[in-house]
């Protein structure tokens, strides 16, 4: 039992945490990029020939402003919904990184840093509380 604990602690070296954080960020960003690219190609096929319209501000339609609306649009394979879903994943990536670091520091018995990561996470959750699901 003692050996097992020692082993599992040794596995979580600083280098391994760094590698995992790197992989997590890369995975999140790449997945987001693939979805945005898919939606983007559909978007350009559909609207590519039309003139752009960004000199005024109308704000996005309500379905593209809430998480549930975006997911519904993306599932019915609508181009703008797919892009927005990819962007949501992109925003989620650094948050997932903070969640992972909280666990990683706790696992390494680095309580000071685990608490710091937890504070950052709490502040993030607080500032995201305004999101409409």
């Amino acid at each position: 039992m003692k050996v097992k604990i020692a082993l599992s602690e040794r596995v979580w070296t600083e280098q391994r945490v760094e590698q995992t954080v790197g992989n997590l960020l890369r995975f999140g960003v790449m997945l987001a990029a693939i979805i945005v690219l898919t939606g983007g190609l559909l978007y350009l096929i559909r609207y590519g020939a039309a003139p752009p319209h960004y000199n005024g501000f109308q704000g996005e339609p309500s379905d593209l402003r809430s998480v549930s609306g975006i997911v519904a649009d993306a599932l019915s394979f609508r181009s703008r919904g797919l892009i927005q879903l990819g962007l949501l994943l992109l925003v989620a990536t650094p948050i997932a990184r903070v969640v992972f670091l909280t666990f990683a520091f706790a696992r390494r018995r680095d309580h000071t840093y685990a608490i710091m990561a937890l504070i950052v996470l709490a502040l993030l959750v607080y500032s995201l509380a305004g999101v409409k699901f």
């Binding site: 939606g39 996005e60 999101v131």
Partner: peptide
């Protein structure tokens, strides 16, 4: 929530 994130514009920016 405020509708500032536009998919048609953010797509080429992100990619």
């Amino acid at each position: 929530h405020l509708g500032y994130i536009d998919p048609g514009l953010s797509m080429p920016v992100m990619l």
